Computed example of a mutant assay.
Amino acid sequence: MTFTTPASDPAPEPTPDEISRGMAALERHLSEQAPTPSPPARPVEGETKRVQQLRAEVAEAHLLADLQDDDAPLLLDTDKVRKRRKAAQQAARLHELAQDPAMRAWQAARMRRALVSFALVALALALAWSTAGVQHFAAEGADPWSPGWVFAWLVEPFMSLALLVVVGARAYLGTRGHPLDNPKLIRIEWLFLGLTLGMNAWPYLPWTADTFSFSRLVLHVLGPIVAVAIVTALPIILAAFTHLDHGHTGTGGTGPKYRANTRPEYTQHGPDIDVLAARVRRLITAGDLPADPGIHKIRTALGCGTDTARAVQKALTRPAITD
């Protein structure tokens, strides 16, 4: 007699509800097995105030030790660091701007105007200082408020005005790059200055003064000497400003890029339009100017006036002159 074991049936697959109930039971089991966080330490009955204070310090130290490992506060810029960074950035931009040819030319022009203004004011004060000495020479002991005494006050002013006309013209033309070195004008300057110096010094010279005083003589010739020094030094200073080279590359700046000095492009009869037009064509070829530049762009690139820029724009329509 043989016995046969019936084949076992395969286990049925769990349903979604059974899976959900199993997951819930697993979560409940894990939550029961997890350690329960201990409540915050409370003062134990019988502890002194000193023990409680030390316990609080220890707890605070543990918290601080955990926070010290975080470097986030060190990555933030303080107000002092931001202020220094701002100052450094501003200094760098100012230095970059100071290297721009347009800025350097503007600074030189401003300094030149200031020096000319100071020189002319000092010259006027020096001539005014000598007015009293000239009046004393011209009055020749006339009674106060007599016609001769009053008219003697007018001798120095009209000589000074004539001298200031010559000096002012030479100063202005020197600032425009056209120094006026005509020998006749220079002789006129020295004539007025010599007359002023002589009339101030004559009454106080050793052979004319009743009682010679060197300090009085120096005091009265001080004005004319200052005037001579200014008239001699001003043309030299202006000539030095005229020959300043402000740079022609304009690297890193905000102003126009100067490819060549414009002074050879100007003659004693005015600007050479053909030379300026050839220069504009080179700038167009190099891509520094558009194919049909306007008057403003031409004026900015050449550093010339509006009339000259307009003439150059008209010359661009003519065929270029080849060498």
Score class of each variant (00 low, 15 high):
Gly223Gln: 00
Arg259Leu: 12
Gly22Thr: 12
Trp153Glu: 05
Ala126Ser: 13
Phe118Thr: 15
Thr306Gly: 07
Ala24Trp: 08
Asp77Leu: 07
Asp288His: 13
Ile284Val: 14
Arg84Gln: 12
Pro157Arg: 08
Ile237Pro: 00
Pro6Cys: 05
Glu189Trp: 02
Leu75Ser: 14
Leu195Gln: 11
Arg176Gly: 00
Glu13Tyr: 08
Leu67Thr: 15
Ala41Ile: 01
Leu123Cys: 07
Asp245Phe: 03
Ile186Tyr: 02
Arg42Asn: 02
Thr306Arg: 04
Gly287Ile: 09
Ala11Met: 01
Asp70Val: 12
Ile186Phe: 02
Leu127Arg: 00
Ala128Asn: 06
Met1Gly: 13
Val116Ile: 14
Ala109Arg: 11
His62Phe: 01
Glu140Ile: 15
Gly194Met: 03
Ser8Lys: 13
Phe192Asn: 12
Pro43Ser: 01
His95Gln: 04
Pro101Glu: 03
Arg82Ser: 11
Glu32Thr: 14
Phe214Ser: 07
Ala105Arg: 12
Arg42Met: 10
Ala315Pro: 12
Glu18Trp: 06
Thr15Phe: 06
Thr232Cys: 03
Gly46Met: 04
Leu161Glu: 07
Thr249Ser: 06
His178Met: 03
Thr242Val: 03
Leu163Gly: 13
Thr322Arg: 13
Thr5Val: 15
Ala278Pro: 03
Val221Glu: 02
Ser215Met: 03
Thr317Leu: 04
Pro179Ser: 05
Ala7His: 08
Ala277Trp: 07
Lys80His: 10
Gln90Val: 13
Tyr204Ala: 11
Ser130Met: 07
Trp190Ile: 14
Glu96Gln: 12
Val166Ala: 02
Arg28Pro: 01
Leu222Ser: 14
Asn182Glu: 03
Ala88Glu: 07
Pro183Phe: 10
Thr208Gln: 09
Leu30Cys: 11
Gly194Ser: 11
Ala152Ser: 11
Gly287Cys: 05
Ile273Glu: 04
Pro203Ile: 13
